[in-house]
């Protein structure tokens, strides 16, 4: 996996949405998820808001990473960041399943040096952490974030090449293909945490279109011992799915960086073994999350 873009994305997101977006939902909404033919375009809305999928708060301006069915990197075209939403287009020229992802990955933190509190520069990676914190620094507080937000679009028959796990953060492995969803058939997905099936993850499923109904139509589930969850769709529509190791707050998991004090209390993702709190070169806290938007079609 290449980190150049996600890091840029991270910086962009932080600049655009933090701290107001904390406790809001980040989402990517494709114009289509199942297309036929050999040459199509899909357009994607990217935004941060409470209500799904209404762009009424902030845009999600990060440049997404496109992975084509053959594994090669694709291109987000006509990227535009507006007041409430960002939009971009993806040209589909291959047969199979595309992944469109915004991955926020990096280390946040601060330390004290010569009586002065300093923030880690934005875009710091875990590998750079040891050198990013100068010798003699005290009161080191760092937190790693891997927030994955991705959607899938299939031209022709669904394929599985884009689901090859990277082993970082939470990832989806299809049991049911995410572009093969029909309202009257339950769908099963497996979730991995750092490449291993993760039990007990909190899976929040919310049907879009909430503005026009009183009930939120939300399902709260946990992954089973093999990291799997089976979702029964109440109806056809666009669903927002959020997966976290900790119980999400009522408004949904925020995606922006949070102060260490909160992150430490909320993120129960396993820490690197034997890493004491605040040790130089190892993040003391960790926040991981997975978000996707799935389209469920009518039978």
């Amino acid at each position: 996996m290449k980190f150049a873009k996600p890091l840029f994305a991270l910086a962009a997101v932080s600049a655009l949405v933090a701290p107001a977006a904390i406790a809001h939902r980040m989402w990517l909404l494709p114009s289509s998820t199942v297309v036929s033919g050999t040459d199509n375009w899909v357009t994607v809305d990217a935004a941060v808001s409470n209500d799904l999928f209404y762009f009424d708060h902030r845009p999600l301006g990060a440049i997404p990473t496109i992975t084509q069915p053959d594994g090669a990197e694709g291109k987000a075209e006509h990227h535009n960041v507006g007041q409430f939403r960002a939009t971009f287009d993806v040209h589909l020229t291959q047969q199979g399943t595309y992944r469109i992802a915004v991955v926020n990955q990096g280390v946040f933190g601060r330390y004290t040096l010569n009586g002065e509190t300093k923030m880690l520069p934005r875009g710091t990676t875990k590998a750079q952490l040891a050198t990013a914190i100068p010798a003699g620094a005290t009161d080191v507080q760092t937190s790693e974030m891997v927030a994955r937000n991705e959607i899938f679009v299939t031209q022709g028959a669904p394929t599985n090449t884009v689901f090859k796990p990277t082993g970082e953060g939470i990832e989806l492995v299809p049991v049911t293909h995410p572009n093969d969803l029909v309202a009257n058939e339950p769908a099963t997905f497996q979730f991995l945490l750092d490449g291993k099936p993760a039990s007990g993850l909190y899976v929040t499923t919310i049907l879009g279109g909430g503005r026009y109904r009183a009930a939120p139509k939300q399902m709260d589930q946990r992954t089973d011992a093999s990291g799997k969850v089976t979702i029964k769709w109440p109806e056809a529509g666009m669903y927002w799915i959020n997966v976290t190791p900790n119980a999400p707050r009522p408004e949904g998991e925020g995606e922006g960086p949070r102060p260490q004090a909160q992150a430490g209390a909320q993120a129960r993702a396993p820490r690197p073994e034997g890493a004491p709190q605040g040790m130089r070169g190892v993040p003391s806290g960790r926040r991981v999350s997975y978000t996707t938007t799935l389209e469920v079609l009518a039978p």
Partner: peptide, 14 residues
Amino acid sequence: GEGTKWLHDVRQWW
């Protein structure tokens, strides 16, 4: 081949 663009609308068959 523009006609194939809407084949997926014949949803169950697609």
